[in-house]
Simulated assay, not measured.
Amino acid sequence: MPEVKITAEVRSEFGKGAARRLRRADKLPAVVYGHGADPVHIALPHHGTLMALKTANVLINLDIDGKSQLVIPKAVQRDAVRTGILEHVDLLLVRKGEKVNVDIYVHTEGELAPGGNLLEHVLNALPVEAEATHIPESVTVSIAGLEAGATILAKDIPLPAGTTLNVEDDVVVLQVLAAQAEEAEATEGEADATEA
C-alpha cells in the first residue's frame, strides 16, 4: 500500500470553539498517539485528509514540525448531516515491521446459483492482523454458484501473505438466504392445506 504524505501543525488550543475555528480555516483537528508517547494534538489539511481516508486503512507519512512519522487512522468522526465533512481523526503511530489490528473490507465476485436467493454480509469487514506497511485494502471472495444455506466462514477467506485472522476461524462472514417469495409461497401453501 502506498504512503500518503500529509503535513500537520501542532495545535495548542482545545475545545469546541478552537475546533470550529480550525474547521472554518479548512483544517481538521486530530490527535496522534501510540508507542507509550504522550498524545500530540495536531491540525491537518481537511481536503488532503479526506482524500487520503478514501483508501481503507491508509498509511500516512505525517510531517510534524519537520519530523516524519507513520500513522494509520484509528477513529474517524464525520459530520452527521453534511456528507464529505470530517469532524476529528484519531491517528495511531506505527513502525515498519510492526503488526497492527485492522478491519479489511470483504468484496464478492461471481453470481449466486439461479433462484433469486440473497447474499447476506454478516461481516462487512474482516478483523485481521497485518504488518503496518503492508495492510491489504480488501479481500475478495468468490460466491459463484452458491445456493441457499451456504455459508462462508472466516477461515475460508484467502488472505494475502503476512496477514492473519484476528477472529475465530468459524465466524460466519457471508451466508446465502433463501428467496423470500419461495418462503411466502410455502407458508401460503401450508395455510391452504390447513383450511382444507
Rank of each mutant, 00 (worst) to 15 (best):
L62N: 03
A191Y: 10
E98M: 14
P136Y: 05
G116K: 06
A150K: 11
E131T: 13
A75W: 04
E137P: 06
L91Y: 00
K16T: 12
N117Q: 08
E9N: 14
E183W: 08
V139A: 05
P39N: 07
T133E: 13
K16H: 07
V100H: 03
P45F: 02
A8C: 04
P29A: 07
E147G: 15
A132W: 10
Y105S: 14
K27A: 07
V76W: 00
P114G: 03
A130E: 01
E190H: 14
K5N: 07
V167M: 12
I42M: 11
I64W: 03
V100Y: 03
A18V: 04
A154L: 02
N61Y: 03
K27F: 01
E147W: 07
K74Q: 15
V102M: 00
E98V: 07
L159W: 09
D103C: 09
T194L: 15
E190F: 15
D90N: 10
V58K: 01
M1V: 12
G145I: 05
G48A: 11
I60K: 06
E131K: 10
E98C: 06
I143S: 09
A8N: 01
D26W: 03
H121Q: 09
K155C: 10
L59H: 09
N166F: 01
V71R: 01
L119R: 11
A43R: 03
V32E: 01
A18N: 02
P160Y: 12
E98Y: 02
D192I: 13
E131W: 05
L174C: 00
A132H: 11
